[in-house]
Nucleic acid binder design. Structure first.
Lengths: 213, 213
DNA sequence: AGACTAATCGGAGAATTCTCCGTTTACAAG
DNA sequence: CTTGTAAACGGAGAATTCTCCGATTAGTCT
C-alpha cells in the first residue's frame, strides 16, 4: 500500500519534486470532487472506489495510482479542511492561535479539534477502518506536535510527548460517535469534559506524583 | 451484520436460550481452534475466513453463521482470555482485585489492561478495523463499568462515565503499537505514564476546576 | 512538426468479505 | 424406529478492494 505516493505527488528519485502531469492533476481534482459530492450525498460509508472512478469518468487504476488506496483518498478529503484548521491554531487569532497563555490554548485546541472531527466524522471513522498506520499519519502528527509544544509551556515537568497522545486519544471519531449515540452525551458535554481534563492535567503535572512515578 | 448472533448463540424468539445443536457447537469450537492456531503461526492480519473455513473443514457459510462476521470471530478469540482477565479484576487478589483502596486498583487495572491488549495486540487491531461499533462492544463496556466504579470511589466529584472513557482511550492497540514503533517507547514507559496520569487525574478531580467547568 | 520517452491510463482479474438459498441433519415426539 | 421440522450446512456468487501490465498520451528535445 502507498508505495510511492505521499501527499500530493509521486516521490522523485532525487532532486526537485516535479509537478504532476496535466492529465494526472486533472484526474486528481476530478476524483476528489466526485468523492466529496458523493460523500455529501450518501455518507462516507458505502462509497465504493469503483463507483467513484466510474462517475469521475476514469479507470479504477487511476484512482489507486493517484491516492494509493482507500485511506489515501480519505486523507486527501480530510486534508482540504485540515489545512485551514492548522492555519487557525498555528497563526490564527487567540485563543486558538498564539497570544494567550498555553493552558488556555490547550483547551481551545481540544475544543476546536472536537468540532473538526465532528465536521468530518464519517471520514475520520473511515480513516481508522483503513490502512493500519493511517490513523497516526499526517494530521495526527501535526496535532501532536502542536499540543506537545503547548504542554511544554504549560507544565514543563510532564512527559509532554506521552501526555499529548493521552489528550488526543479521547478525541476520536468513533469514541465521540459512541458517546453521542450510546451514552446520550452532547458535543458540549464532551467539550466540557475535555476542558476540565486539560485543566486538571496541566495543573496536576506541575507537582510530582506521590509515588515518584 | 450480526443480525441475530450475539455472544455464543442465536437469540431465541422468547424464553430460555436453547443450547446449540451438537454439530453447531462442534463447528464453533473447530473454527476457533483453527483460527487461533493460524493466528499464532502467521499473525492476525492476512487471515482469510475462506482459508479458516477450508482448514476447519466447513463451508464459509458456517463461519459466518457462527460468528456473524470477521469482527465476531475476532471477538470470540479475544473473549477466551478476556474472561480470565475479568475474573482477575473483579474477584482476584489485590491490587487488581478488591482489597485495596480504589486509587491503587485503578493503576493496577490500567497496568493489567496494557498487558492484556499487548498480549492480543493483533486481534485488538483487527477489532478496530472491522465492524464499526465492535470497538465499544463487549469487553470495552465491562472495562468501562469497572473503571467508572473505581473512579466513583476515588474521586466522587468527577464525571466518572466520561473520565473512564478518557482513561481507556489511550489503552488502544494501535496507539500502543504506534508509540512502540514510531516513538520508541517501551511498555514499561507507557505503563508508567498511565499510572502517573491516573494519579494526577484522581487527585485533580477532587477539587473543582478553576473556571468552574 | 516529428519523434522519443517516461508517466499515466484503464480495465481485466486476483483476493477477500459477506449473502443467499437449496439441501442435509440433529433431535424430539409419537 | 419412523417421521416432522427447525436449525445448520456449504458453496456459488455478488460486491469490494487492490494489482498488473499493455496501450496511450503529455511534454520535451531536435
Amino acid at each position: 500500500m502507498l508505495p510511492f505516493v505521499c501527499g500530493r505527488r509521486t516521490l522523485p528519485v532525487i532532486g526537485q519534486p516535479q509537478p504532476e502531469r496535466a492529465d494526472a492533476a486533472r484526474n486528481r481534482r476530478k476524483i476528489i470532487e466526485v468523492a466529496a459530492r458523493m460523500i455529501a450525498e450518501q455518507g462516507a460509508d458505502d462509497i465504493s472506489l469503483d463507483e467513484v472512478a466510474r462517475v469521475a469518468g476514469v479507470g479504477v487504476g487511476t484512482v489507486y495510482r493517484r491516492f494509493g488506496d482507500r485511506a489515501g483518498l480519505v486523507l486527501a478529503l480530510i486534508d482540504e479542511q485540515e489545512r485551514r484548521f492548522q492555519e487557525a491554531f498555528l497563526a490564527g487569532p487567540p485563543p486558538l492561535g498564539p497570544g494567550v497563555r498555553a493552558r488556555e490554548r490547550i483547551t481551545a485546541f481540544l475544543d476546536a479539534l472536537v468540532d473538526r472531527v465532528v465536521a468530518q466524522q464519517g471520514l475520520f471513522v473511515q480513516l481508522e477502518r483503513c490502512g493500519r498506520t493511517m490513523r497516526y499519519s499526517g494530521p495526527y502528527r501535526v496535532h501532536h506536535i502542536h499540543l506537545a509544544t503547548l504542554l511544554a509551556e504549560a507544565c514543563p515537568e510532564a512527559d509532554r510527548v506521552f501526555l499529548a497522545d493521552v489528550l488526543l486519544a479521547p478525541v476520536n471519531a468513533r469514541l465521540i460517535a459512541f458517546q453521542q449515540e450510546e451514552r446520550g452525551m452532547t458535543i458540549e458535554q464532551i467539550k466540557t469534559g475535555l476542558a476540565r481534563l486539560a485543566t486538571v492535567v496541566t495543573r496536576g503535572y506541575s507537582v510530582p506524583a506521590e509515588d515518584g512515578r
